[in-house]
Each structure stands twice: as structure tokens, then as C-alpha cells.
Design a protein around this nucleic acid. Structure first.
Lengths: 153, 153
DNA sequence: TCAAATTCATTCGTATGCAAATGATATCAG
DNA sequence: CTGATATCATTTGCATACGAATGAATTTGA
């Protein structure tokens, strides 16, 4: 270790390291890593569907037929992004689309019987994914974490 | 509200809602939304650089010249992804690349003077981004949140 | 009522993000 | 020493993710 290094450490110790920027301590960086880990866990349980695709199916299962735009609002997805997601679900026969009778701008989306069967089959796996994602935390920690995370989202 | 709705509510109340899957309560979904919000805050403060690009610059500023692969490891980025990030930073003159003298597989990456100037200018903004991201939490909550988030990442 | 503003969907461009395959180089093990 | 393995970088393909622009349809407001 050089003399310069020793001097630097002294300076850092004096000011509580406030002059140094540590990427790995920033909330954005850790948030990105936590999200990555979750997506990886998701893929290990549900290989043939992505989290956004699953979210669209789960929401349609929850509320029934609705417009593409409304789906995007409910699952926090950009209009351009949701279009791609719905297109791929449609191509796989999990959802079907139709025109709104009254408001001709709207594209109605609904589950097909295959889509309904798929989401009913996948929901138990999704519970396991949530469990595994939160596994590093105790039950109490998980509850605290979810409460605080919700305040940030 | 219909009679069916009342019945459903009774059933849900009886079993503690355990038979219902609420997407908006799942950790993965909230994690994705929190990450989205952070990226949006980031963009409002630093418009000409993405979070991954900033991360690469910050890490190079921290550790100095290193291989592309090592950068990817340190900022949790896939080799294919980090290549694109470095390519774009290179195109903008913020980093420069060279071949490793001994190990000819490696591509060394380093900040240019412009890159160093940029990251020094941006780090104060990054601190503000972290602050704004955590603003919905009290200081104590933020500390708890970061501790638990780190356990998940 | 009717022009302005808004909403819904689409398209384009750019940027992650990752799996899988490939090629070049380096290391290891027998 | 050399064949098997491992590592590093690249490329391709697919899937989000979002800003901006566009067009069609609806709603608003003076």
C-alpha cells in the first residue's frame, strides 16, 4: 500500500467516507440487482412465460375482458410495451382481441380458454416464486420489506 | 354491487383471501414498479446517460482500467449487455479500449479525460437521485429498507 | 356546435437484458 | 506436452421498456 493510499484512508475516515461514491450501496443499483434475481427465480419456475406476460394474464384473469390500454395501466406498462406483450400472448393463443363496439379506438383483450387454463395452472407456481424471492428474509422482515417497498413503488 | 359480489366477499373473508392471487401484492411486481420509478427519477436528473452507462463509468472511476468482462461482473451485467454499454460509451468518447498485453482475450477499458470529467460532474447528481428515490421513507425506514433489499439482491 | 384537447393504439428508434452458439486464447491435468 | 476445460469476447435472436411521432376516434368547452 502506498503512502498516498494511507493518506486517502485517513481523509475518508475523518469525513465518514462522505466524499466517496459507492455504486454498490446506491438504492438504484441494489434495486436493479434484486429485480434481476427475482426475474431469474421466475424463469426457473416458469420457463415458457415472462413476468410481464404472466402479469397480463393474471390481470385479465382478475378483472376479465378489458382494453389493451387499461391492461397497461393496471400492470404499469407503457402502451408500446404492452402491445408487444399482448401480441405475443395472442400469437400463442392465450388471449384474443376484438374491437370495442362503442368506442372504436379501443382494442378489447380477453383470455382464451387456453389462457384461462394456463393462468390457473401457473398461479400456484407464482406463489412459490414469491416465497423463494423473499426466502433470505424472515417472515417479519419480509412484511416490513414489502411495506417499505410499496411506499417506493 | 351484485349478490354474487357479496357472496364472493364473504368467501374471501372466510379464508383470509388466500385463494385469491393479487398481482399488485407480489414482491416481483412491486420490485419492478419501484425499479421503474427509480429509472424515471434517474432520467429526470441525468438525461444524457442511462443508469447502466453511469454504473460502468462510476465503477471505472472507482477501480481504474479493467477488462470488459470484469466490469460486467462488478456491475452485475451480462457479457452481451456490457458490450453494448461499453460500445456506446466508447462512441461518445467517454471510455477507450485497448488489448491486454499478456492475455490476448481481454479487452481493457478505461475512462478518457472526458469520461473522468463527466463522472465527477455526475456523482453529485447521483446522490440527489438516491435521495429522491428514498424520499417516501423516513431516514430510519430507508436504512431498514436498504438493509433488507441488500439481503435480497 | 364545432374547434381544441384528450384518449387509444400503432410505429419507429434506441437501450437494456439474457440465452445460446461461436471463435480465440489460456489454463489445467494426466 | 497435449488434449480437455475454462475463460473472454462477440454475435444472434428474442423480449421488455420508454420517448416521440402519428393517426383515428372521442370528449370537452367556449
Amino acid at each position: 500500500m502506498s503512502g498516498e493510499d494511507n493518506l486517502l484512508r485517513l481523509v475518508e475516515a475523518e469525513d465518514g467516507d462522505e466524499n466517496n461514491y459507492h455504486l454498490q450501496d446506491q438504492v438504484g443499483f441494489i434495486l436493479r440487482k434484486a429485480h434481476q434475481r427475482h426475474v431469474s427465480i421466475f424463469a426457473s419456475h416458469i420457463g415458457d412465460l415472462t413476468p410481464p406476460q404472466f402479469a397480463a394474464l393474471a390481470k385479465l384473469y382478475d378483472i376479465g375482458e378489458t382494453s389493451q390500454n387499461q391492461i397497461g395501466t393496471l400492470i404499469a406498462m407503457d402502451a408500446a410495451t404492452v402491445k408487444g406483450v399482448i401480441d405475443r400472448l395472442k400469437a400463442r393463443g392465450l388471449v384474443e382481441v376484438s374491437k370495442h363496439e362503442v368506442d372504436k379506438r379501443r382494442l378489447l383483450v380477453n383470455l382464451t380458454p387456453e389462457g384461462r387454463e394456463a393462468i390457473e395452472r401457473l398461479i400456484p407456481l407464482a406463489r412459490a416464486i414469491t416465497e423463494e424471492t423473499l426466502a433470505p428474509l424472515t417472515a417479519k422482515e419480509a412484511a416490513t420489506f414489502l411495506r417499505l417497498l410499496a411506499k417506493l413503488a
